[in-house]
Design a binder for these strands. Structure first.
Lengths: 199, 199
DNA sequence: ATCGGAATGTGACGGGTGCTAAGATGGTCT
DNA sequence: AGACCATCTTAGCACCCGTCACATTCCGAT
């Protein structure tokens, strides 16, 4: 007899799976995720997860959305610490990089298009800024407050986001990994400052 | 009888596997790579590849090195088209982004740390620029030619690389994907130009 | 030239995974 | 009470990775 067969219906399997998945993700990376393993951890049969996710890709997709939400929240919080537009942009940039360095796996999974990333729905006509993209909208608003010139708005927003995203990526995956955690803040601040010096 | 058993020794299996792998990578992504599948394509037994690669991760690592070499070559070529330092930096930036958009899977695999990326050996003490990092050294040289101030050298090199790397990543995986191919060049040029305006 | 080691290739095996199909169980609503 | 539906289970297929012992070929040393 199985030990503690437990109730036939788990009650909240989907969230339990997501919790376990987040733990595995943080400590072993997205490659270590396995529906069967998660089922095992949740004390449920190997194929039970398929009633809550269409497949592995769907589970990863859900994690990506969560990660993007977390990043979005961190940026919103950073944005709220400042009042002047330039300060808001700088704070968001630093927060962006710090989030990536603090939660590298979450950051990676948030921007992984392989399994149908979280930006599918944004396939609008090229040329326009994705104003409502999560983790981007706060930056757009701050830039709007900084300058009224639309041309400059697009350029500044795109450049700032690219800069911090690239810095974050290089710090996580690239040749900038050796940089210690406590240097990151200074690095990010200096990088972002190059843009918003002139209001 | 198996059709055309072929010679017992393939002769050049390692390179054959790498060629097939590159093809699979380009058209289906790194996730679709399988040693057994590659062996099948090369007309060889399922475990033959293990005599040329320690495992799947090793194969991916080799592909990453190749991809990084290709990027490095593209940057060197772009660098050579210009003579003045600012022009060299701009040309490299545009080439960087164009490479990523043209060969997204190669670009991705080049900067994938999950399976022990190609930047392992660069784990030097933090704070110093990785001068000899492939795909980075040409930029460092151009920056050196632009300004003599070491502080400014570091800032400019890091910021430029971060900018183009981030732009490339966002165009490939992120919310900037809808941007059409022919807009990319202009986007990259405008972004890079914001830095090297002042010599 | 031959002999023996090293490199390369083969087949079978254990452990793991994703995913589907068919049946069992338990809430829920009329 | 009865019927329905979501949830969970068992069984099974196909694929994969990596290791093992064994076969074949090449190549250099004697």
């Amino acid at each position: 007899m199985p030990p503690t067969p437990g109730p036939y219906h788990h009650g909240d399997l989907r969230h339990a799976l997501l919790r376990e998945a987040a733990a595995v993700l943080d400590e072993s990376g997205v490659g270590a995720l396995s529906l069967r393993d998660l089922a095992r951890r949740a004390g449920v049969s190997p194929t039970a997860p398929y009633h809550h996710f269409r497949g592995r890709a769907d589970l990863v997709h859900a994690l990506a959305l969560d990660a993007l939400d977390a990043l979005d929240a961190a940026l919103a919080a950073a944005d709220a610490t400042q009042t002047d537009p330039a300060g808001r942009i700088r704070a968001q940039g630093v927060a962006y990089v710090l989030f990536a360095v603090t939660h590298p796996e979450r950051f990676r999974v948030a921007f992984r298009a392989e399994t149908g990333g979280p930006f599918e729905h944004l396939a609008g006509p090229g040329g326009a800024l994705p104003e409502d993209a999560p983790a981007f909208r706060h930056l757009v608003r701050a830039v709007r407050a900084l300058t009224a010139d639309p041309e400059r708005q697009v350029g500044l927003a795109l450049a700032t986001w690219s800069l911090v995203h690239g810095l974050a990526s290089l710090l996580i995956d690239g040749p900038l990994r050796p940089f210690a955690r406590d240097q990151v803040r200074g690095l990010a601040e200096r990088a972002v400052a190059q843009f918003v010096l002139d209001a």
